[in-house]
Amino acid sequence: MLKKLLSAGLVAAGMLAVAAPAGAQDVTLKLHQLLPLKAAIPDKFINPWIERVQTQSGGRIKVEHYPSMQLGGKPPELAQQVTDGAVDIIWTVMGYTPGRFPRAEAFELPFMVATAEETSVAFQKYADKHMQNDFPGMQVLAVHTHGPGLIHSKAPVSSLEDLKGMKLRGPTRVITGMLEQLGAVAIGMPVPAVPEAVSKGVIDGAVIPWEVTLPLKMAELVGNHTGFEGDRGLYTATFLFAMNKARYDALPDDLKKVIDDNSGVEAARLAGRAMDEVDKIGMAKAQQAGNTIITLDAAETARWKEAATPVVDGWIAEMDGKGMDGAGMVMDARDLVAAETK
């Protein structure tokens, strides 16, 4: 009798062992992005995000992280790669695909940005309101921004006049347009191309946040860094962290919940916080190098804001011409940032 009970128990246990994996679907997701692993977002946002998702799924979700465009293509192709399902998740710069995310550009306008954390939360709330239809084929995990963008240049920029004729890299069409309006010669290029362009004299400097100066070694390439008085920086860029929609839809409900629990405002907050943390390190690195850090006073900052006003007006008119409420989007963006900075 004991033999029969043991035998039955072993058979039942065997059946459970076979049945469990069938019910517990395992998923491997390929995540593709343009930055090296030691950059702020991969190191302090994407990798911790991967760890949380893998842990909270009980190991049923595995995320393979491919940095520095290791799966091929160029940074502007990332949005299409995830839409087509060539990869499962991407992190990218929205402005690398001009015209694809026009509503996001409200946050790239001059002197919109506060800290990265505050602005990222505001941007996520803005996207939830204004950009619901802007991501066909994607499940948005988070949108965010970097912190206040500065001018990093070989020659010092202490006034608006110093900018005239200076060749500066800009990341997106709105920001290159702003630089042109302010008197610079703006050259658009993805951020990985900046060090070589500076070294070869193709550009005289770049507009980037402090955190990006670290992987680019900008403190070694230029000697001057110019920021602005007050709680708003010159500009920011917008970023997208997204999953292929069909891949997301195919997940069982419990794994969708894991993804959902690591999406939205709190994910945007963490991405922004990562940027802010490394901004401090980037600034300290420039100080240690003995570089000149310039903060334009309130009067000079006001001159730059006035000079940049046509960029805002032009963007509003352009959006109105496309049937969007340009002024309303700018007002919402400003109000949302202001609400986060109280």
Rank of each mutant, 00 (worst) to 15 (best):
I281Q: 12
K30E: 12
K4C: 02
L71G: 12
V121D: 00
A302G: 06
W304I: 14
V157Q: 05
F123Y: 12
K280V: 11
E161Y: 05
G183R: 02
R334G: 04
N291L: 08
A155D: 15
K280E: 15
P75R: 09
I281N: 05
G328I: 09
A122L: 02
A299K: 15
S159D: 12
P110E: 10
I203T: 04
G326K: 07
S68K: 02
S153Y: 03
R100Y: 03
E318Y: 06
N224F: 07
G264C: 07
P21L: 05
Q288I: 11
T119D: 04
M15Y: 00
E51K: 12
Q287K: 15
P42Q: 10
V63N: 04
E211A: 14
T309N: 13
L160M: 10
L37F: 10
F241K: 11
G233L: 04
L214E: 07
I175R: 12
I46H: 02
G137R: 01
E220D: 15
G72V: 11
A39D: 15
M69R: 10
V121R: 15
L168P: 00
K257S: 13
Q70G: 09
A284L: 11
G95T: 10
W304N: 01
K62S: 13
N244S: 11
M218N: 13
E105L: 08
G177P: 00
L179C: 08
L16M: 14
W210A: 12
P252Y: 06
A268C: 06
M243E: 00
T238L: 07
L141A: 05
G72S: 11
L270I: 06
A307Y: 10
D320M: 09
K4H: 11
A339I: 05
D260L: 10
G227R: 03
A206D: 15
M166W: 04
M1K: 11
H130E: 13
